[in-house]
Amino acid sequence: MIRVENVYKSFAGRPVLQDVSLTIHEGSTQAIIGRSGSGKSVLMKHIIGLLQPDQGRVLVNHTDIGKISYGELRKIRRQFGVLFQGGALFDSMDSFENVAFPLRTFTTKTDQEIRQEVQTCLDLVQLSNVGSKSTSALSGGMRKRVALARAIALRPRYIIYDEPTSGLDPETSNTINELIKNLAHHLEITSIVVTHDMHSVLQIADHVAFIHNTRMHWTGTTEELHQSTDTVLRSFVKANEYVIGAQH
């Protein structure tokens, strides 16, 4: 279980998050939605301790990650897989090495075992033949999938997706959404999906948190989202609806 409690964060005097709280239950798929620049990525980085809150705290399995040593924090982080917005693939390595990297770094597996493991991960994201490709030779969708393969290589307990479908065509978006759903199902992962793509949300999430004006404006299940009368939330959903319409 992940709990974000009354987190405040500002950059250079400008508040980005104010009194933000959120509870993410094991096994659930939590969507965090909001406008571009509303602080979704900032919130997500608090969850893995890449950013420290000015006020408030973040608990991962009841451990306040602001109160533990860097070494302990790194151990906790190893339970997370993170898919960053742009993929964040290491451009000093090819695709195979990117996926193999966490395995090489954190396990004592032999080269043979790593090779097999990488192949399994690449199969899971439906990319079997990109291994030796330089990361710059990959398309946007492929980059995200390689990054996803890397994120799941260590079989994380939690996986965080930052804008997994942004910048992708609807079809590729769909594939990614399917993947996220499958992974959550197959690997029994707790997923956190940061996005402003309502289509994704409706397709994969069971819980939704809406950040608006630096505050946690609304939280609830996907069903509750449909019935909500909150005008701000409705207009945000509506603004994204044409995408949904296009899909159906």
Binding site: L50, I76, R78, V82, F84, A88, F90, D91, F101, P102
Partner: peptide, 18 residues
């Protein structure tokens, strides 16, 4: 710098690497 702005450094950290 490139690793920073493309979040590769964050990715390293998020993996639990120093």
């Amino acid at each position: 710098g490139t690793m920073r702005v493309t979040e590769q450094i964050d990715a390293l950290e998020a993996m639990g690497l120093n």
